[in-house]
Structures are given as structure tokens and as C-alpha cells.
């Protein structure tokens, strides 16, 4: 797979995390569905990998100790999610 740029990585994160949100809500009311648990775990692993790839290049995705800054404090350097267009 060719290296993805920040926009492509973000799109992938949004897709994976949405899948996780939807499976999470489903599992809240169907906790014994082993196949859905396996799907959830697989998505969670892929999401963690993609977030790590994103943060290496594009900056921290989350605050309060969930992401590291390399060198200087990078949290406020990238635009905010509602500022994505020109």
C-alpha cells in the first residue's frame, strides 16, 4: 500500500472510527455476539495503527495524554476540525 497523505489518513481514521462507534452501540445491546466482538477488535487494531501513522506525520489527534508531541507542543498547530475549508 502506498504511503497515504494526511487527508487520506484522516478519511481512513473517520471510516474506521465510525465503524467502531456503530459496532460499539450494537454491542451495548448485543454483548454476546462473538462475531461482532471479533469485528470490533479488528477495527480497533486497524484504527490504532492508522492513528499512529497519522500522528507520526500530521500531528497529535487527541489531548490529555492520548497523543505525544515531538519536540515542541504540537497540539494547537494543526487547524481545528471545523476549519478544514479555505
Amino acid at each position: 500500500m502506498p504511503a497515504m497523505n494526511c487527508d487520506e489518513l484522516m478519511t481512513r481514521i473517520q471510516a474506521l472510527e465510525f465503524t467502531a462507534v456503530d459496532l460499539n452501540l450494537y454491542l451495548d445491546t448485543h454483548p454476546c455476539d462473538a462475531r461482532a466482538v471479533a469485528d470490533y477488535n479488528q477495527v480497533a487494531a486497524a484504527l490504532a495503527q492508522t492513528v499512529a501513522a497519522y500522528e507520526r506525520v500530521c500531528g497529535p489527534l487527541a489531548n490529555f495524554g492520548q497523543s505525544q508531541s515531538c519536540g515542541r507542543w504540537a497540539w494547537v498547530e494543526q487547524p481545528w476540525p471545523w476549519e478544514t475549508q479555505g
Binding site: 478519511t11 473517520q14 472510527e17 465510525f18 489527534l61 487527541a62 489531548n63 490529555f64 476540525p81 478544514t84
Partner: peptide, 9 residues
């Protein structure tokens, strides 16, 4: 925890 992203673009 805040994630710097929208759930849907």
C-alpha cells in the same frame, strides 16, 4: 478526551 476530527467530514 477530545479528538481533533469530525465524526463525518
Amino acid at each position: 478526551v477530545y479528538e481533533k476530527k469530525l465524526e463525518y467530514p
